[in-house]
Each structure stands twice: as C-alpha cells, then as structure tokens.
Design a protein around this nucleic acid. Structure first.
Length: 791
RNA sequence: GGGCGUGUGGCGGAAUGGUAUACGCGGUGGACUUAAAAUCCACUGCCGCAAGGCUUGUGGGUUCGAGUCCCACCUCGCCCACCA
C-alpha cells in the first residue's frame, strides 16, 4: 500500500483560493425565503493590536461548525464578520506613541482579518463593516437621533460614575465592584449633565421577553437580577407638613415600623434636621462623602453607622410616631432613597435597631425564637389586620393607604437609564447641536455623518477632546449660525454594537440604516456566539435597541428580540488563567497552523472539552487530531472499494452525532468519528458510504474534507451536498446479559422475557456461571438487558 | 449572606438508571530507520505472581442495579451582594 502524504498547507491554500473564487459563502439576503435562512453570528471583535490567540479561535470555530452544518441541512446561511473598532485601547495607544487611533485601528484590522481568514471560517466578507468608518457611524448617529426624536434620548444632570484614569463617565453596567470595567481603577461619583437613553421605558419587556429566548439560564437570570424588578408599594410618611416617601416590598409589616431611615444625600434632610442635631448630621454627611462607594458597601453587617435627625414622622394607619434617622446603608439611587425600618422582619433593619437601641416589634407570627423573621405568616400587633396572612394583608394595607392618599402599589427597578456620553475622542460624535441659548437640536440628516474632527489633541483632560477642535467649532457656526455649537461628547461604543447585526444585511446601503424588508426575513439571529462577559452589557443594550426599533416601526414589529439562541463559549486557559496579553499566557495559533494545519487546530479547539466550560490548553493534544486526519487521508487515498460492509457502524455513528450536534457536544462528535475510523483499520470501505462520512466531518475539517470529497470523483463542493440520512432499519437489537448485576455476554432480544431467557441460559458463558445454581429472579428490560439473579 | 456550578486514571475528558474510565494526550515496550523525527503495532485506573478484589469528594437512602435520582456534609470555582 502506497503512502499518501497529507500536505495540509497545500490542501488548505488550494481550497481557500477556490472557495474565494467561487464566492462559496456569499449570500444575497434579498433573495431568500425566510423559512430557509440561518443567521449565524459571532460577537464581532475589537481589533486589538495583540492579535488573536487560540482562545479566540474556539468561538469562531464553533460558530463556523454550525454555519457549515446548516448549509448541509439545505439552509441559506449568513455568517458575516466585522469589527467593533471604536474604543479606548486604540486611543490610549495613540496617546502613548503620539500617533492616531485610526492608524492603530487600521493596522490591527489588517492583522486580525488575516488571522480570521486563517481559521478557514465561512465568513461572507462581502458583508464586512467596521464601526469607526463614517459609512457606519453615519447611521449610528442617525439611530441616536431617532431615539432623540421619540424622547428616548435626553440630556440631564445626574450623579454619574466617573473614571479618573480614563477621564470619562461610565454607564452603571460598566462599573464592576466599584471599578472601571476597562481599566480597573476606582470609579467615583460626579454630578454632571449627560446624555441618557431611556432603557427603563422598556423595562418590563426586557424582563418578560427573556422567557421565550433559547439562552443559557445563567444569562437570563443575570439580566433579570440586573433589571431587578420588585413589586411593592410607595408609602408616604408625614413629619409636620413634610412628606417622606419610602418604597417597600413589605407593606404588611407597616405596624412594625420603628424608624424611617434616609440616605445621607436625601434632599429633605436639610428641612428635617433639628437645631440640636445639626452638627452631628452634617458631620455624618461629611464622613460619608469622604468614603468611596466601595468602602460604603463593604461595611455590610459589621457596622450600621447612623445619626438621628431629631425629627419624628407619623406612620400612616397606625399614627405611631417614629424617629427619622440617616444611615449610609440606605442608597439614594434606589427606590426613593428612604426606607421604613422594620427590625423584627428585616436583617438590615434588625442590626440597625440593635446598634441604635430602637424598638423591635414583631408583627408577623412566627414559631421561631430567633429574629429577624423574614418569611410570611399571619399578622399580629397590627390592629384590624391581625390574623390575616401577610400576602393578603399587604394588598389590604396598600388599598387602605390609597384611600387616605398615603400610598399606592408600585413596582421598583434596579435598572437605570443608559448613560451614553463619553468624554473621549475615539467614538461617534453625538449628533446634537446647541443654539445660542443652549437648547439641544438634532443635527440635520444632510449633515450626517457628523465627522470626527482631525485637528484634535486627544489627550484626555476631563472634557471632551473634540471641544478643542477649531474645525469643529467653525463647522457648527458655518452650518447653523453664529453662537451655535456641537455637542462634544462621543457615544459609548456599546451603542455601536447595539445595532450592528441589523446593518450586516445592508452594510453598504447609502440611503438608509436599515433594510426593513430584509431584516423582516432574517432577524432574529438564529445563533449568537460569544463570551458571557456581555450578559448585562451588550446583550441588554442590543435588546433595548431592538425593542425600540420594533415599537416605532423601523423594523417589523414582530422582531422584538435580536438573538433567538445564545451560546456562551468557555474560555481557553493556560496555567489556570484565561489567556491574556497582560498575563503573558497567550498561545498563538500561527505556529500550530503552520505545523499541524488549520483543520487540525480547528478539530482540537472543539475536541478539548465541552464547549460551555473553560478548558486548559495543552499544545501536545493537537497531535491526536493530526494523527486522526492522517489516518483519514490514508483511507481516502488507499482504501476505497469493495470490502467489509460498514453500514451498521456508520448508522450508529450518524445516530449518535445527530443527537450530539444540537446539544453543542462537539468533543464527543469527534470521538465518535475517531471510533468509526478506528473500526475501518486496513480494510476497504465503500465509496458512497465513505463519502457520506466525509460530509459529516466537513463542518469541522472543511479543507481536508473538500479535498477528499473531490478526490473521490465529485466535482461539486462538499458544502453543496445534503447531510446523510440515518438508516436505522438494519440495527439489530442486542441486549446485555447480566448475572447478579455483572456483565456476562450479549444476546439477541427476542421481545419477550421467557423466550429471551431461554436463549440467554443456553449461551456458553452463561452456562458456566449458572452451573447448578438456581435462578431466583429475572429482570428483563426489552431492548436493554436481561439480569439473572441467582440464589 | 444569596444564587448557580463543579468534584471520575498521570492529564483533557466519556457514560438516555444497565459492562465506569469511551475518545484523545502522555507513558512503556516493539516495528521501520545508520540515527532521529514522523508513522505503525501492543500494553497502560488501583492492589495482586495469579485467581480475584477495589474504585466516580464523604456518609446515608431509593432501586434487581446509582458516577447518574433523593438527603446531609466536604472541596473548589463563578456571579450577585446593605436593592428596602
């Protein structure tokens, strides 16, 4: 038998070129029947100067598997790729090297695009887009203006998150444990006038529509928790003529209130504080102000610092007088910034009351001796509500409060509006122009894109770099008149990525942002692949934008969700840590590709372990896949012909992988393929059967499979074929014979216990074990096993 | 503190309640080679010369049968965290 040489470099170069010439992956989205489409999308990358590592490959290989698999299922597959190319890293690099962010970005794009092509993924590059290009951000600006026109983009004063390192404000979602999500430095609070998008307008849909999505439960619950819906009541407490509003989820415990507690920043404090307490209160407020948010939150149970205002408030319905306190465990930016303290039935209030010697009155009956008792039960010490169940009592109390104008049922959310202004250069300018009186107006459509000015020193200085551009100042006056000026902040780059998946359907359309008809056919995305780190960032923003566009008919109103199925790929680690340039534990794919080939690396990325969990990289593991490919190639070159009938093995293989593929179990798909190949050994295999086998492997090993496919005499691409149909008709039913739980042999399943037992006891292996012993019991499971229990 | 995971050979990992350790890596021995690499073949959970016994974090339970289901505990990991 002659040795065929598996020359991966030659094979890969050959098919890469041919596929490109044939435009194998290019689709015309306008011509496709919606039923037969498959939109497969990767979270598009930021063009980092560090290039791709083997961890990045994993996601792209996975999405490419499904793109190609769906082609073989007869679907028209859209699998586009582009770059999320505005953002801080390029700008910071430019400052460091006294260059321009565009230059860094362009260079990185060239490198990464080359690396992406190396993967051999089925990207349709004709749909390419890059968010920093004017032909994209023109429409990003347009989108912002649509939000503005519908009153969903608004400039307002607010206490916002400020990153001193990056010299810009951040959205709530970009603050992680009090630190900047990008640079890790401490975030402080600043009162600033900023642009907000009203994500809270869609808050209920953002929670409720999660139910219909095929997303990992983990991500759904992260979003639910982030949005944080709590159903409860607003209750108004009177202190002389002042009204203090609190939010509570436990209106049933109203008769157990022993104090009102306000956040230190609460605006009513000034009016509430008595002369005697003035000094103490001001000192307390001062001490809180000097704490960072993290310090403030890290105290938790250990200490509940607080100060008394000297004033009292009346509890509605009971008319009890309770003291008004100030404590920093109450947060100004949640609810109303004030709470009613019920020590007997709330952990925090209990600690607070113990430290400051407040009354602890039980109003829910519990058998437990230990307080606080936070569950529901029947009311006690609550006047006419005594004996009622707390759930019932809560709604009754709210009803009664409503009658006297002292409260109402309400729902409170943790989600805040999305702050999108950034005081940095490398982003899309916010397309707003101010008249001489300072009123905001939309930049006219004919002036879009409002280009980023070039004459800018973009070293950050707390105000936006483009405010210092002469060109930008002059342009505003030229277009709009004397005294007019543009907004000088830029848009959060998450705004760019919140709509890019629509633009892939018409990336070069100069007349409109959205191709509504095509979007109607192609959205939602069928499979979206990326890391879990965007659970409450990008994925939330993209859902918001989609809901906005659907509500106002920019897209078909049925498309209320952007991503039907989401899959989170587990990270690839080295030495126990996620690969990153800063940790210095990067494995580059380039040498592996050269040595083992793209197919082998693709296969190993999938073989390394389950797709949704982290995996530890081991360079040597790729050997196994490479050997497998060599074996495969040998068979295709030398062992095709009349020989043993492998149709039974193949049927089993196909049945197994058909189950595994929808569950993303691609590591075991490869195992199954290896088993099948191992069973062939040196024997001949039927050409048609082997061809079917090649088709099933083509999504993983596209280059080699196309080569083998065409070497078998086929002239059309393997990706134009149909996925084989599993033939289960020939499968014989063999079942396991056990004696006292131990495996003994296989035997035919005759369908009934009696017949099968007769057959089983005649097997030589069974006869030996049985000897003179008596069978006391038979357990027969049709199609599975027969278990003979001996005395 | 709350939520969600996880625990199987030297390693990555496999196993609709039915032969635990598939598949691969690594290792050992052999073939080929002047030699090496590559490739191929055999063996490779643990104890034992063997027969045989033991083994899925620990302890219970359900079952003819448990890595898998139930209860309790331990380990490690991730996320959220004074959200009223």
């Amino acid at each position: 038998m002659s040795k065929a040489i598996y020359d991966h470099s030659a094979i890969e170069a050959k098919w890469q070129k041919i596929w490109e010439e044939q435009k194998l992956y290019q689709v015309d989205p306008h011509s496709v029947n919606a039923k037969n489409k498959y939109y497969c999308l990767d979270m598009f990358p930021y063009p980092s100067g560090h290039g791709l590592h083997v961890g990045h490959w994993r996601g792209y290989v996975l999405s490419d598997f499904y793109a190609r698999y769906q082609m073989l299922q007869g679907k028209t597959v859209l699998h586009p790729m582009g770059f999320d190319s505005f953002g801080l890293p390029a700008e910071n690099a430019a400052i460091k090297y006294k260059s321009h962010p565009k230059k860094f970005t362009d260079e990185a794009i060239v490198t990464i695009r080359k690396q992406l092509e190396d993967i051999g993924a089925s990207f349709d590059w004709s749909k390419y887009l890059s968010t920093c290009e004017p032909n994209f951000y023109k429409w990003t600006q347009w989108l912002f203006l649509q939000l503005f026109k519908h009153g969903l983009a608004e400039k307002r004063n607010a206490l916002v998150n400020w990153c001193g390192q990056d010299q810009t404000v951040l959205a709530n979602e970009q603050v992680v444990n009090g630190k900047c999500e990008r640079c890790g430095s401490m975030v402080s609070k600043k009162e600033l006038s900023q642009w907000f998008l009203k994500t809270t307008e869609f808050v209920d849909e953002l929670i409720d529509d999660l139910d219909g999505l095929n997303w990992p439960e983990r991500v759904k619950s992260l979003q639910r928790d982030w949005i944080g819906r709590s159903i409860g009541a607003k209750i108004i407490f009177k202190s002389d003529d002042l009204s203090i509003e609190v939010f509570t989820t436990r209106a049933d415990t109203l008769f157990g209130v022993s104090a009102l507690v306000l956040a230190p920043e609460h605006p009513l404090i000034e009016k509430l504080v008595t002369v005697e307490q003035k000094n103490a209160v001001e000192q307390y407020q001062q001490s809180v102000r000097s704490k960072t948010n993290v310090d403030r939150q890290q105290q938790k149970e250990t200490s509940k610092t607080a100060v008394f205002t000297g004033s009292y408030a009346k509890v509605p319905l009971s008319n009890k007088e309770v003291p008004i306190w100030i404590a920093d465990y109450v947060l100004m930016d949640y609810g109303t910034g004030a709470v009613m303290s019920v020590p007997a039935h709330d952990e925090r209030d209990f600690q607070f009351a113990k430290i400051h010697q407040l009354e602890i009155l039980e109003v829910i009956n519990s058998n437990k001796t230990e307080l606080p008792f936070v569950e529901s039960g029947d009311l006690i010490n609550s006047d006419k509500y005594n004996g009622q169940n707390s759930k019932v009592a809560a709604s009754k109390i709210i009803e009664d409060l409503e009658k006297i104008g002292a409260g109402s049922a309400t729902t409170n959310y943790r989600l805040r509006d999305w702050l999108v202004s950034r005081q940095r250069y490398w982003g899309a300018p916010i397309p707003i122009v101010y008249d001489p009186q300072g009123n905001a107006h939309a930049v006219k459509d004919e002036h879009l894109p409002l280009l980023l000015p070039k004459d800018v020193d973009f070293v950050p200085g707390g105000e936006s770099p483009i405010a210092r551009s002469r060109d930008f100042i002059e342009l505003a006056e030229k277009l709009y008149g004397k005294g007019w000026h543009f907004e000088t902040d830029t848009l959060d780059t998450f705004f760019d990525s919140s709509w890019y998946f629509f633009r892939f359907l018409s990336p070069t359309d100069e007349n409109s942002a959205l191709d509504t008809e095509t979007i109607k056919n192609w959205l939602p995305v069928d499979l979206y692949i990326g890391g879990i780190e965007h659970a409450t960032l990008h994925l939330l923003y993209a859902r918001f934008i989609t809901k906005f566009l659907a509500k106002y008919n920019y897209i078909d109103t049925h498309i209320t969700e952007p991503f039907q199925q989401l899959y989170n790929i587990g990270s690839i680690n080295l030495h126990g840590a996620r690969m990153s340039k800063s940790k210095g534990n990067i494995v580059s794919p380039d040498l592996l590709v050269e040595h083992f080939g793209r197919d082998a690396l693709r296969g190993y990325e999938l073989f390394i372990g389950p797709m949704d969990v982290e995996a530890e990289w081991n360079n040597r593991g790729i050997n196994g896949i490479h050997r497998f490919l060599i074996k495969l190639y040998q068979i295709s070159a030398n062992q095709i012909g009349e020989g043993r009938n492998f149709s039974e093995q193949f049927a089993r293989y196909l049945t197994n992988i058909n189950q595994m593929i929808p569950q993303f179990r691609l590591n075991t798909v490869i195992s199954e393929a290896m088993k099948f190949v191992n069973s062939i050994k040196e024997e001949k295999i039927d050409k048609e059967l082997f061809g079917k086998f090649i088709i099933t492997l083509a999504p993983i090993f596209p280059f080699l499979c196309e080569e083998m496919w065409q070497n078998l005499g086929n002239t059309e691409s393997v990706f134009k074929q149909n996925w084989p149909i599993a033939d289960t008709s020939k499968e014989k039913t063999k079942i396991t014979v056990l004696i006292n739980q131990k495996f003994i042999a296989y035997c035919d399943d005759l369908g009934s216990e009696e017949e099968t037992k007769q057959l089983a006891v005649e097997l030589p292996e069974v006869k030996v074990k049985l000897a003179a012993k008596k069978i006391s019991k038979v357990i027969y499971r049709s199609g599975k096993l027969i278990n003979l229990i001996l005395d």
